[in-house]
């Protein structure tokens, strides 16, 4: 089921890229339909996995990668529905493809098997924490794709078929603004879970540090754009930096803990 969803997403991405190249309305419509299908099939795959495991599919690294890709696609489709700009898909769906490729190809089959979870991971706060983080990260991924489009637009002002820079920037801001409360909720729910599981709501572990860095970067983005009038390239690069921090939180920290021989409780 997950592989079918991935194939549908891959098809949607190719169609969005074709739309970018040839600007045919029908290509955009078919791409959106394929992306919607991918979203439904991936959701069904996640639900079936949850049913098979007898729990929410929100605990392992593999499951979070799936959820991250799904949330990126969901956030993108909401954006396309609001803006009616299929060209955005050519820049955003490749990121969802990347995340799902990492999930489906980057883990050995033993790690992809749905297993029962250890008692410490059985908490409603963990579920809220993970779901919120995935939604926040998904919005961040969409904002990153939009920022790449913005930078392309800036470099090629005469390029045909690309929306005006201000439309792209507004959509990026809206996406970050929509995702940021989820990132905040993820930190809050994670703190509550850590307090009940480990006896401290914040332990300055590498994972926690980078989750905070990610949150601070997006806060600077929103603060700067809403109150200080930051525009243009600076915002685009900040959105990309936020996404880079997101990836660091998700995959980079595990590497860092291993490379620097640091200690972390966030190993599941």
């Amino acid at each position: 089921m997950l592989n079918i969803g991935f194939d549908a997403l891959l098809a949607a991405t190719l169609l969005y890229l074709a739309y970018l190249a040839w600007q045919r309305l029908w290509l955009g419509q078919v791409a959106a339909a394929a992306a919607g299908l991918a979203l439904l099939v991936l959701a069904a795959g996640l639900v079936l996995r949850g049913v098979a495991a007898g729990r929410w599919p929100l605990t392992s690294h593999f499951e979070f990668a799936l959820l991250f890709g799904w949330a990126t696609l969901a956030a993108y489709l909401l954006l396309e529905r609001a803006t009616r700009q299929p060209v955005f898909g050519a820049f955003v769906t490749p990121l969802a493809v990347g995340m799902l490729s990492y999930a489906l190809l980057g883990f050995p089959s033993a790690e992809r098997v749905a297993r029962p979870v250890s008692p410490v991971l059985r908490s409603v706060w963990l579920e809220i924490h993970v779901l919120s983080a995935a939604l926040g990260y998904g919005a961040g991924a969409v904002a990153a794709g939009m920022s790449v489009l913005f930078l392309v637009r800036e470099r090629r002002p005469q390029a045909e078929g690309l929306p005006a820079a201000e439309i792209i920037e507004a959509a990026t801001r809206q996406t970050v603004a929509a995702g940021f409360p989820f990132l905040s909720l993820a930190l809050l729910a994670g703190a509550i879970w850590a307090q009940t599981a480990w006896g401290h709501y914040w332990g300055w572990e590498p994972k926690e540090c980078w989750a905070l860095v990610t949150w601070l970067v997006y806060l600077v983005f929103l603060h700067g754009s809403a109150l200080r009038g930051w525009r243009g390239r600076r915002l685009a690069w900040l959105a990309l930096l936020g996404f880079a921090c997101t990836l660091m939180t998700f995959v980079g920290v595990d590497w860092l803990v291993e490379a620097a021989r640091l200690e972390s409780l966030h190993v599941f």
Binding site: W204, P206, C209, W210, L212, V213, L216, V217, L219, V220, H223, G224, R228, V253, L256, A260, R261, L262, E263
Partner: peptide, 21 residues
């Protein structure tokens, strides 16, 4: 000032994550 202090806090947090505690 608040914006740049947020940037500073983010940088220090990132730096702290690299140090064994």
């Amino acid at each position: 000032v608040a914006t740049w202090l947020l940037v500073g806090l983010a940088l220090m947090t990132a730096l702290g994550s690299l140090l064994p505690q």
